[in-house]
């Protein structure tokens, strides 16, 4: 139905001839932007309902008494619906460590939260299908769990700035939200987040549409195809310092993969962009010493690269 609408806009309303690159670009743009927007609004609403039950204070209590393994798994899962702006990384970190959550479990949460988010999942679902969306969520969880366990095992407690251990945080009382408020909250979140990322989606799809209509299909095969083993680490290396949201990234990814970029390489690049950024590292430097920061970044670099290789092999 949606495809028919896009065809109708392109060929009937705009009167463009079949098979021209411009028509192909516009058809693609109309179809993709409507599909992605609707799906995004629905998924963000659902996740916001879940989020209304989960606050950092609760996460902290739930993971505080856990041992390695179970604690990391729990922290990574709870990180999915709990997003934070990069500057919240510091208060979250202090809050967790101060209340006795082990360092490794804290990192599992800090890695999962930005790495796995509903906007990216919704867009992957809309543009690549459920298999890729599920693969993204599961690999994000595995990375967050394993990276957290490794950081925990390395016993790097001394690489945390001393003042973090001296912080005392008052327990803030939380009021229970009635269901009516949860629905209002979810509706507002869905509207706000969708509207906020919409310009990026449209821009991304527009850029994608141009490439879609004009670039030859095997354009990227040699540079970023499966047969170039260096493509994955280079994509991750470029992606890590970049700070962008998933919303603008994924439409371009869709086109890059259509033009010959290997799917694993594209996913690894996306994870590097959203999972870690230079602003976040600079802000984390306030609470952890440079050695731990470097270990953290290195572990993520290796994880994203391995994930890229794995997917390139599996999705072949």
């Amino acid at each position: 139905m949606l495809q028919e609408f896009a065809d109708w806009v392109t060929y009937t309303v705009l009167g463009l001839g079949q098979n021209s690159p411009l028509a192909s670009s516009i058809d693609f743009f109309v179809y993709d932007s409507i599909k992605v927007t609707v799906m995004l609004a629905i998924i963000v609403f659902g996740v916001a309902i879940i989020r209304s039950f989960i606050t950092p204070q609760k996460v902290k209590k739930w993971v505080a008494g856990r041992t390695e393994g179970l604690g990391n798994i729990l922290a990574a899962i709870l990180g999915i619906p709990t997003p934070f702006c990069s500057c919240s990384a510091v208060p979250l970190f202090i809050g967790f460590v101060e209340s006795g959550v082990p360092l490794g479990i804290t990192f599992s949460f800090l890695i999962a939260s930005p790495l796995i988010n509903e906007v990216a999942a919704a867009m992957l679902l809309a543009m690549f299908g459920w298999e890729i969306a599920v693969l993204y969520i599961i690999s994000g969880l595995v990375i967050a769990i394993i990276a957290g366990i490794i950081i925990g095992r390395l016993r790097l407690e001394s690489e945390v700035e001393e003042f973090v251990y001296k912080c005392k945080i008052p327990d803030s009382a939380e009021k229970v939200m009635p269901w009516k408020d949860r629905l209002i909250y979810a509706k507002n979140e869905s509207r706000d987040i969708t509207l906020k990322v919409l310009p990026y989606i449209l821009l991304g799809i527009a850029i994608g549409a141009v490439i879609h209509g004009y670039a030859p299909a095997d354009f990227l095969v040699n540079i970023a195809g499966k047969n170039n083993p260096l493509a994955v680490p280079i994509a991750v290396l470029i992606g890590i310092p970049l700070y962008s949201n998933a919303a603008g990234m994924i439409p371009i990814m869709e086109v890059l993969t259509a033009k010959g970029m290997a799917m694993g390489t594209a996913l690894a690049f996306m994870m590097a962009v959203i999972g870690l950024s230079l602003p976040e590292m600079i802000i984390l430097r306030k609470v952890i010493k440079i050695k731990l920061l470097a270990i953290f970044a290195a572990i993520l670099f290796i994880s994203f690269t391995l994930t890229g290789y794995l997917f390139n092999a599996v999705l072949g």
């Binding site: 950092p56 934070f84 500057c87 919240s88 979250l92 912080c167 005392k168 008052p170």
Partner: peptide, 10 residues
């Protein structure tokens, strides 16, 4: 900020 018990900013 921590004294005020706030973990999510702003």
């Amino acid at each position: 900020i921590m004294e005020r018990g706030v973990m999510l900013l702003p």
